[in-house]
Design a protein around this nucleic acid. Structure first.
Lengths: 204, 204
DNA sequence: CCGTTTCTGGACTGTCAACTCCAGAAAGGG
DNA sequence: CCCTTTCTGGAGTTGACAGTCCAGAAACGG
């Protein structure tokens, strides 16, 4: 739709815009959207107020750009595994990666997309739409792997890749939330192991 | 620990305090903590500023009281089923109830506790502690039902009630989040069906 | 190299939200 | 019934934050 749109941006302008989004994403991940002021973003990105408002029509627009940015970042962090979730072994490797990523932060921060979703779903319809799209991409990657397995005849025909992918993403999100709150990876591991076991129950 | 503590409260004082917490809980459920000002709470509860600060040491303390309030409300809304999750049929009835509750709101709002958790986990350590306690009670209720099943010999001895309960709660939370964002109950239903199928896979 | 557009610095404004204060009303307790 | 404590009304203070404005610097395009 728009995302980058606006008028044309100079090479320099694009760099400044990216710096703002990256700084905002980092701060909003750490303190939430409401806990991050535009002044904080300006300071972190090393830009002035007029610059921020030159590239974005206000905080809400900046937040939408942050959602897009974080969606890319989260999906990229799971590659190349995410694009090849077409075996139980691949799913387990992906599970291990996700768990290790959380352990690496000390279980802080939760899911960059999930946290934004919880904070914004009820108060910013445009943000919610962007989040639906982000989750759809994530779920789509999982679903594609499962569909490949079914297509190959490894999963029974009564396995529904779309529904399994939805349930897996739900387990992942809930596991991330509990892991964030409890500051231990056990809930995330348990949730993903459940999802994989459930998928494995459809193996031929 | 403290929760109600403070000095002694008159019958009337207790009623006023409850009104404030209930109003704050409702508003924070609809708009989030950051999106709810103390002025909003005052107006909704029909109290003055001095009253709010008479009963709470500030917004943070009020938020903690809201967490306790919502924990009670969420658990109560699932009774009497929640205390008797000791068969697959009981789990399915509970699943149906949870899904219907969400459908009843039009899938708005998500989980009252989960939303608070996502918003507060990183910015309010005291709130995080209260949320850990709230989730523990929820998970404990699920775990107790599963432990009963295992004790009766309905679940195999390699089933770990605590871990299954954690995974189920994770699925529930993630399902609620996706359901909130997508405005449809399918993700919640898929996640809970997965959890129940996983539990059923441990039946003797 | 020159006109136009984009980009940047920084001061400024208006609003809103958290929290304080104090005086007076109501309740409790002996 | 009176004294103490709790409770309430409402005005006031302080600070922060989203967003504006305009003048000047840099980049681009022919």
């Amino acid at each position: 739709m728009d995302a980058v749109s606006s008028p044309r941006l100079t090479r320099k302008g694009l760099a400044t815009r990216s710096r703002i989004v990256a700084a905002a994403a980092q701060l909003m991940f750490e303190r939430g959207v409401a806990g991050t002021s535009t002044e904080d973003v300006q300071a972190a990105a090393g830009v002035s107020s007029s610059q921020l408002y030159h590239y974005f029509d206000g905080k809400q627009h900046l937040v939408r750009a942050v959602i897009v940015h974080q969606t890319e970042a989260v999906l990229a962090a799971q590659e190349p595994l995410l694009s090849r979730l077409d075996s139980i072994a691949a799913l387990q490797a992906w599970r291990d990666l996700v768990v290790e990523l959380q352990a690496g932060h000390g279980c802080e921060g939760g899911c960059p997309i999930g946290s934004l979703a919880a904070e914004l779903a009820e108060i910013d319809p445009a943000a919610r739409a962007e989040l639906v799209a982000g989750f759809a991409r994530w779920e789509g990657a999982i679903r594609d792997g499962l569909a490949t397995m079914r297509h190959r005849g490894e999963l029974r025909s009564d396995a529904d890749p779309a529904r399994l992918a939805t349930a897996t993403l739900a387990g992942l999100q809930g596991g991330l939330l509990l892991t964030q709150v409890r500051r231990e990876t056990a809930p995330l591991a348990a949730a993903l192991d459940m999802a994989i076991a459930h998928i494995a129950s459809f193996l031929v």
